[in-house]
Amino acid sequence: QTQEFDNEEEARKAEKELRKENRRVTVTQENGRWRVTWD
């Protein structure tokens, strides 16, 4: 699953929550947008 964010702060917040659920999370930056991908 993927979700896009406008800034790193929001993306990192989402990453932190997903990691609490023991998910594999990848955060990438593309064209000024932050993308959080998880399984």
Results as ranks from 00 to 15, higher is better:
Q1V: 09
Q1H: 14
Q1T: 12
Q1A: 11
Q1K: 11
Q1N: 14
Q1Y: 14
T2L: 08
T2H: 09
T2F: 15
T2S: 13
T2Y: 15
T2Q: 08
Q3M: 15
Q3S: 07
Q3E: 09
E4W: 15
E4M: 15
E4Y: 15
E4V: 15
E4F: 15
F5Q: 00
D6H: 06
D6G: 06
D6K: 05
D6C: 09
N7A: 04
N7G: 04
N7C: 08
N7E: 05
N7I: 05
E8L: 04
E8N: 02
E9F: 11
E9Y: 12
E9P: 08
E9W: 14
E10N: 05
E10I: 03
E10M: 07
E10V: 03
E10P: 02
A11Q: 01
A11W: 02
A11K: 01
A11E: 00
A11G: 01
A11H: 00
A11C: 07
R12P: 00
R12K: 06
K13H: 12
K13L: 13
K13N: 12
K13D: 10
K13G: 06
A14F: 15
A14R: 15
A14P: 00
E15C: 10
E15P: 00
E15I: 08
K16N: 12
K16S: 12
K16P: 01
K16G: 09
E17D: 07
E17V: 11
E17F: 10
E17Q: 13
E17L: 13
L18D: 01
L18F: 08
R19S: 09
R19T: 08
R19V: 10
R19D: 04
R19Q: 10
R19M: 11
K20A: 14
K20Y: 08
K20P: 03
K20S: 10
K20F: 09
K20G: 12
E21R: 12
E21F: 14
E21A: 13
E21Q: 14
E21S: 13
E21D: 12
E21P: 06
E21H: 14
N22G: 15
N22M: 09
N22V: 04
N22H: 13
N22Y: 15
R23T: 11
R23E: 07
R23S: 10
R23Y: 15
R23K: 13
R23H: 14
R24N: 15
R24G: 06
R24H: 14
R24F: 14
R24V: 14
V25L: 03
V25N: 01
V25Q: 01
V25E: 00
V25K: 00
T26W: 13
T26Y: 13
T26A: 07
T26C: 08
T26E: 11
T26G: 03
V27D: 00
V27I: 09
V27P: 01
V27K: 01
V27C: 07
V27T: 04
V27Y: 01
T28R: 06
T28K: 06
T28F: 10
T28I: 12
T28L: 07
T28M: 07
T28V: 11
E30I: 13
E30W: 10
E30Y: 12
N31K: 07
N31G: 12
N31W: 04
N31H: 07
N31P: 02
G32A: 04
G32I: 01
G32R: 03
G32V: 02
G32Y: 03
G32N: 06
R33K: 15
R33I: 12
R33H: 06
R33F: 09
W34H: 00
W34G: 00
W34F: 04
W34S: 01
W34Q: 00
W34N: 00
W34Y: 03
R35N: 04
R35P: 00
R35T: 11
R35Q: 07
V36M: 03
V36Y: 01
V36A: 02
T37D: 06
T37R: 10
T37W: 14
T37V: 10
T37L: 06
T37N: 08
T37H: 10
T37F: 10
W38Q: 03
W38K: 02
W38M: 05
W38N: 03
